[in-house]
Computed example of a mutant assay.
Amino acid sequence: MTNLPIFRQESSVAGEGTPQQLQSAALGDWKQNTFKKLRGGFFLVLGYLLSPLCWWNDLLFNLPIAYGFGYICSLFYPKLLLPGSIIGYWLSNIIGILLMQFGAMDVLQNQSKERNLKKELLSGVVTSTIYTLVILALVQLKIIDAAVPLLGS
């Protein structure tokens, strides 16, 4: 018989390995989960600040963003300042709700399953649009008063 080379078999089965390899893998998972939670928390807070759920955000965030968007639109055609500002305000609220949704999914989901960005984006736009339509209906039915009282009146 011929001499056959002897190969050393490496263990690649999950759960087998040296304690250092297991500790390194656990540390890597912990770092990844911590980063995911921090990123999700950042998006959640930023989304809350841009969303219509935060009552004081308009003066500090949404109106300057809306005016900037309207101003950029007015550079192309001067009469687009007001419509561009309205669209910019709506977009800032939509982006806020989407950021909250993405952040909440990072913070609240424990398992790392594959995410479908197209489905999540569509879901966020649909829920944001429904929210906007509900608020509009409540204002039109005079259940909510949208008039802002003048200071000093």
Rank of each mutant, 00 (worst) to 15 (best):
L81G: 08
W90K: 08
L63M: 11
L53I: 06
G84E: 03
C73E: 04
N93P: 04
G70I: 06
W55P: 13
S51W: 04
M100I: 00
L91E: 05
M100Y: 07
I86F: 10
Y67F: 14
S85L: 11
L75V: 03
L60M: 09
G88V: 06
D58Q: 03
P78K: 10
L44K: 02
G47L: 00
G68A: 14
N57K: 11
Y89W: 12
L53S: 01
L46C: 12
P78I: 07
S51T: 05
I72Q: 04
S74L: 04
L59W: 14
S85W: 05
L91K: 05
S92D: 03
S74D: 05
W56A: 07
Q101T: 06
L44I: 00
Y48F: 11
D58P: 07
I95A: 15
G68C: 06
L75N: 15
P52H: 06
L82A: 13
D58V: 07
Y48C: 02
G84R: 03
Y67Q: 02
Y89S: 05
L53W: 11
F76L: 13
G68Y: 02
F69L: 14
P83K: 01
L98A: 15
A66G: 14
I72Y: 09
D58E: 07
W55F: 14
L75C: 11
L44T: 03
L53T: 02
P78H: 12
N57W: 00
L53D: 04
S51P: 08
P78E: 15
C73A: 12
I86L: 15
W56Y: 15
P52G: 04
V45Y: 13
L49M: 06
L59S: 13
S92A: 14
Y71E: 09
L82V: 09
G68S: 08
G68W: 05
S74W: 00
K79R: 15
A66S: 08
Y71I: 06
L99S: 08
I65A: 05
I86E: 06
Y71N: 14
L53K: 01
Y48I: 02
G47D: 03
Y89I: 10
K79Y: 09
I94R: 03
G70V: 05
C54N: 14
S74Y: 02
Y67S: 02
P64Q: 00
Y77T: 11
Y77P: 11
I87S: 02
I94M: 12
M100L: 01
D58R: 06
F61S: 10
L59P: 13
G96A: 06
Y67D: 05
P52K: 01
F76A: 15
L99D: 00
S74G: 01
L63I: 15
P52I: 03
N62G: 02
S85F: 02
L59M: 15
L60R: 05
P52D: 06
L81I: 14
W55G: 11
I95N: 07
K79C: 13
Y77N: 08
G88Q: 01
S92M: 02
